[in-house]
Amino acid sequence: MTDTTPQQDVPTAAEERRRADRVLDTGALRALAHPLRVKIYDILSQYGPQTASSLAAQLGESSGATSYHLRALAKHALIEECPDRGTGRERWWQRPVGGVTFANEEALKTPAGRSVTQIVMNEFFRNRHDQLMAYIDSGIVNHGGPWDDAALISTASARLTPEQSKELSLKIMTLIDDAVATYRDQTGDDVRPVTIRADIFPLPDLGGPS
C-alpha cells in the first residue's frame, strides 16, 4: 500500500534556532536606538562580560555614562548582570546567550517602528563594517601575520529563486551555529574573538533581460 499523505517538511536545526531567536519588541528597540548603546551591546556580544569602567576605557566615555546606558539596556533584558562575578562596587554585565532579531514584523507596520528599527540596524552594521575596514587596513599594513590564511573575506554572486536563497541561508547558518556552540567558551593563548558575517540578499533589478 502506498502512503499518499503529504509529508511535512522537517525543520532544520538552523530553522529551529531561528525560531528560538528573541524578536525585539518596540520598547527594546527604542532602548537600543542610541549609538553608544549599540556599541556597548556589540562589545558584550563579541568580547563577553564587561564592567562600566572597562567599557568606558574602550569607548572613551565616563564610567557614569556607560553605567547609565547599561542600566537602560538591562531594563529591557537586552543585557544582564553576571551572576558569579562582581562586587557591590564593580558590577559585571553580559549579553544573554541566544540570537536576537531586530526586524519585528509588528514594529515594521508603523512609521515609528520602522524608524527605530532602521536606527538600530544602521548603527549595528556601521560598527561591523568599520571593524571589517579596520581589519583590511591592518592586514595591508601588517601583512604576513598568522591570521592571513585563517580569515575569510569573500564575495560572490549567483542567480537564485527565493526558495534556493533560503536553502543556502539555512546551510550557512547551520555551519555558523555549530561553530558558535562548539567554541563559544573556548580559551587559550591563540584564541581571539572572531566575527562571523554572512550576507545573502537580492540585488536591485536593473531592468535588463533576464
Score class of each variant (00 low, 15 high):
M1K: 01
T2L: 06
T2C: 02
T2F: 02
T4F: 10
V10F: 02
A13N: 10
A14N: 13
E16F: 04
R22F: 04
L24C: 07
T26Q: 02
L29W: 04
L29R: 04
A31V: 02
A31C: 10
L32H: 10
P35L: 07
I40F: 11
L44T: 09
S45R: 13
S45A: 14
A52K: 05
L55W: 08
A56G: 06
L59D: 03
L59K: 01
S62V: 03
S63W: 14
G64N: 06
A65L: 08
A65K: 12
S67E: 11
A72M: 13
L73F: 11
L73Q: 10
H76S: 12
L78W: 06
L78F: 10
P83T: 07
D84K: 00
T87P: 04
R89N: 03
R91E: 04
W93L: 09
V97E: 07
G98S: 02
G99M: 04
G99S: 08
T101R: 15
E105Q: 01
E105S: 02
A107Y: 05
P111I: 03
G113H: 06
G113K: 07
S115H: 14
V120T: 08
N122E: 14
F124T: 07
N127V: 13
R128D: 15
H129E: 11
H129G: 13
M133E: 11
I136P: 00
I136H: 00
D137C: 12
W147N: 05
D148A: 06
D149Q: 14
L152S: 11
T155P: 00
R159S: 12
R159F: 12
L160Y: 12
E163D: 02
I172Q: 12
M173E: 14
M173W: 08
A179S: 09
R184K: 11
R184T: 04
T187S: 13
T187V: 14
V191H: 11
A198I: 08
D199S: 01
P202T: 04
D205H: 15
G207E: 15
